Computed example of a mutant assay.
Amino acid sequence: MLTHCILSVDYSDEWDKIYDHLPHLIDLLGIERLTLVYAVEPQNRRRLEDDDVAIDGRLRRLGDDISGKLGVSVASDVRHGFPASELSAAARKHGADAIIALNRSHSAGRAALFGNSVMHLVRVARVPVLVIPYDGEPSQPNAPIMLASDGSDASRNAQRHFEQLAQNATASKVVWVKDDHAGEAEDERMQPFLDDMQRRFTNLESKRMSGDPADKISSYADHEGVALLIIGKRGNTPIAELLVGSTAEAVARTSHRPVLLVP
């Protein structure tokens, strides 16, 4: 489904955690090619290891290791600039289907004060972004996939990605969270959608919850140990994707399960 992905590399101590999740996600999403991207940030003082030749050599060695372990084709690309912008640009340049990045902070306060490259990436990317939490546990065999949806037109692309995966999944879940401001009209709109999904997929369980959508979605995904949580990046209006407090971004920031955000 996501045949070619950009894989963000940052060489942090936590980055190796991505190896815990990649094998299962590669199989689940049908990934065949990875392009490793490292962005040299302009505000950092240049060091010997920031030399393009040294970085390229390091990326190639990492690529050989990943290719040997995971059986995918691997290329590399050294770029200069802010990571979110460069990863998005690399996806356009290489015609990638998605971008994979490790989230190393679950703190909203830290993201607000110091910035969070992954959250910036979620805002600017025009392809799906797969966010992997550094402290998440690897998925168990036959773990379910999950769609969080509000049934809006903006969530249709996320739904299509989910439906492709649900055809072959052992178990799948669709979750709708009714927030405190939603009225009865939302129930009337969403119930047929949930019923239809459950009717079309025999391995699917639909669930309705009430409360704060981001909190409920993240908590339920953690509790169920889902292999992948899929959610539309935009809200009911395009401006929602620009808001720091959007549901999709909050889910990606706080979830301990891999999250695929689909524009």
Rank of each mutant, 00 (worst) to 15 (best):
N157G: 07
A158D: 01
A158I: 02
A158M: 04
A158G: 14
A158S: 08
Q159L: 13
Q159T: 14
Q159S: 12
R160W: 03
R160E: 03
H161Q: 15
H161V: 05
F162T: 06
F162D: 00
F162I: 06
E163K: 00
E163S: 04
E163L: 02
L165Y: 04
L165G: 01
L165R: 02
L165V: 05
A166T: 01
A166W: 07
A166V: 03
Q167G: 00
Q167D: 03
Q167N: 05
N168F: 02
A169K: 02
A169R: 05
A169N: 04
T170C: 10
A171F: 05
S172E: 00
S172T: 04
K173D: 07
K173S: 08
V174M: 06
V174H: 02
V174D: 01
V174S: 06
V174Y: 01
V175C: 01
V175P: 01
V175K: 04
V175R: 02
V175H: 05
V175E: 11
V175W: 09
W176P: 02
W176S: 12
V177D: 00
V177T: 11
K178M: 12
D179V: 07
D180T: 11
H181F: 08
A182S: 13
A182G: 01
E184Y: 05
A185H: 10
E186M: 13
E186Y: 15
D187G: 03
D187W: 13
D187F: 11
D187K: 08
E188C: 07
E188S: 12
R189E: 11
R189M: 10
M190D: 08
M190Q: 13
Q191N: 09
Q191W: 05
F193M: 14
F193C: 08
F193G: 08
D195T: 00
D196M: 00
M197R: 04
M197G: 01
Q198Y: 03
Q198P: 01
R199H: 06
R199I: 01
R200M: 09
R200H: 14
F201S: 05
F201D: 00
F201V: 04
F201Y: 09
F201M: 01
T202K: 06
T202R: 12
T202S: 15
N203Q: 13
N203C: 06
N203A: 02
L204C: 09
L204Y: 03
E205A: 15
S206L: 04
S206M: 11
K207N: 13
R208D: 03
M209Y: 11
M209R: 15
M209P: 05
S210Q: 09
S210R: 13
D212R: 15
D212I: 15
D212Q: 13
P213Q: 14
A214H: 15
D215M: 14
D215R: 12
D215A: 12
K216D: 14
I217W: 04
I217Q: 02
S218T: 15
S218G: 13
S218I: 04
Y220F: 10
Y220K: 10
